[in-house]
Design a protein around this nucleic acid. Sequence first.
DNA 1: TAAAGTGGGTGTAGCGCGGC
DNA 2: GCCGCGCTACACCCACTTTA
Length: 280
Amino acid sequence: MKVYAFKIPKKPRENITVQNDKGPAFYDKLHQHEEIQISQILEGTGKLIAGDSVHSFQRGDLFVIGSGIPHFFKSAASSKNSQMVSLFFRKDSFGSNFFDIEEMKELQGFFSNAKTGFKTISTNRKIVESMKGLISLGHFSRFMVLIQLLKDLSDSPKTKLSGFVQQKQVSNDQGERLRAVFDYVMKNFDQKIELKTVAKLVHMTPNAFCRFFKERTNKTFFRFLIEVRVEHVCQLLINHKDMPIVEAANTSGFNSISNFNRMFREIKGTNPTEYLQHLY
DNA sequence: TAAAGTGGGTGTAGCGCGGC
DNA sequence: GCCGCGCTACACCCACTTTA
């Protein structure tokens, strides 16, 4: 497995590509592409790895993934049906200066936020309907919808996806290793994971692996693992409102509630109870 | 690669709060 | 008042990370 330098399949002379992914799971191979990706989750749950961060996704979420950000959507095993409408375009799709003209200045917020990617929850029915409608539209209508969509997304509340901007393309060999590590973590985060096991998985010494992982993701391996666990706890608590916090923490790989609380506060900036109160 | 430094994991104690 | 739950603080150990 590798970080695919992904080519978005598009027809000749097509500048906006619309994709309707429907099935038991989404395309789950780590990849990166030049196009900016706007994806609306219509059905399904799971985790999105984008750049250096882990995010949960569920129905209604909308993600903007910037050009060159390595990413993949990992559908949850419990998710039987997944559907996502995605739109791909490049900033220079309509000419190198198209988005720099005065009339497009209001969209600069979108492009600056898109560099690190962002997530927004589409409470705005207009955005959801625009995304759904894209599938059946012709080229001109798609273009018009895109411009309005960019404006709506510029104004919508957003959460940053990745903490840093990827400066260079990840090579196939490096991507292969990262992909193996991500895959292993996704399958085993609820159990004890040792550095030497993961390092061995990618044929590296623990020292070399630590350096490698930090260089590519801008964070340590264990920091990444904790983020995956915390995200899983959040999903458990959201989906099972009566589940005790200590049970959610235990089933997500935390052995000590005190350590869990500390990690949760570091990552979410608040304690689990306040986090849930904020959501409802 | 090895040594030094860092910080994550764990156990324990204690506080606040709500329910019984 | 007692109990359970959620949370925080602290100390200690040692695995992990960084650096030379």
